[in-house]
Design a protein around this nucleic acid. Structure first.
Ligand SMILES: [Mn+2]
Ligand SMILES: [Mn+2]
Ligand SMILES: [Zn+2]
Ligand SMILES: [Zn+2]
Lengths: 138, 138
DNA sequence: TTTGATATTGAAAATCAATTTCAATAAGCG
DNA sequence: CGCTTATTGAAATTGATTTTCAATATCAAA
């Protein structure tokens, strides 16, 4: 998959296409691990050496706003981002190497209706994240 | 429920009982909402005016280490803490007022075994959090 | 193409939360 | 009551993120 759809989306939302943005977008889109802003900076600078860290923050902000990336919450920190899956998806993270996989097909209907009844809450959303070891790391 | 069991646990683990600790423990234990260190500070200072913010951080650290509190991850930030349920429990958060409820009895066995097979991951843990509106906020 | 309005840039400064340092104090044991 | 030492709050420091700003680059319009 190429970086074009993301760049197009940025453009369609009134943002200009620049070297800094191209480098950040390509970097994040290619990643199979969640990346912190600093990691994005280090990787993207190889493609575009003039890049400033500030532009990484600014671009990540826009990508998140367009739902092209999502923040990854982990016990050791919540500053990393990964390309967002399309549709309703959840994350599976390798506790050893940090690799990220998406999965879907969870059915929490039965659970949420029980909880809803038990607590009186009207349930709107859920966060589900699995942690484990990828094939390589087992 | 009183603050004594937590204070006892601190003492049993070699920590001394001080005014600062009592104030923080009471504050966090009584809360029905997740509290940030600064919120704990403001509340606990009413009980113990000499309290320093540093001691809040230090006490929260120890309570988390003893699994008496847990960090709450939310879209708007991940710095808040809530009294930890006992046993395997999950959180249900009110998106409007921030009230926290615990629930248990989720069974993700079927799901995780499918995902495990599909991805090759050995699944070790899961995070599940529900968001919704409490009775008052509906 | 050229032009011009303005979005975007990176550097530097500022902010903010969290951590470390440190000398004074207080907990808890004998 | 004393003594050891864990704990304290203030202040300094760190580290991440945000803001400010003048220079520059994008891109639509001429
Ligand atoms: Mn789901
Ligand atoms: Mn569970
Ligand atoms: Zn792995
Ligand atoms: Zn509510």
């Amino acid at each position: 998959m190429t970086a074009i759809p993301w760049l197009t989306q940025l453009q369609e939302n009134g943002y200009r296409l620049t070297g800094a943005r191209r480098a950040v977008v390509e970097t994040v889109q290619q990643a199979t691990h969640a990346l912190t802003p600093l990691q994005v900076f280090d990787l993207a600078r190889k493609k575009y050496p003039a890049l400033g860290l500030v532009s990484v923050y600014r671009t990540l902000e826009k990508l998140e706003e367009l739902h092209l990336i999502q923040r990854v919450h982990q016990p050791q920190g919540c500053q990393a981002f990964i390309s967002a899956g399309s549709g309703h998806q959840h994350l599976l993270l390798c506790q050893n190497c940090g690799q990220v996989e998406f999965f879907e097909g969870d059915d929490l209907e039965a659970l949420t209706s029980v909880i809803s009844q038990r607590t009186g809450y009207q349930i709107k959303e859920h966060w589900l994240q699995l942690f484990g070891l990828c094939r390589n790391c087992q």
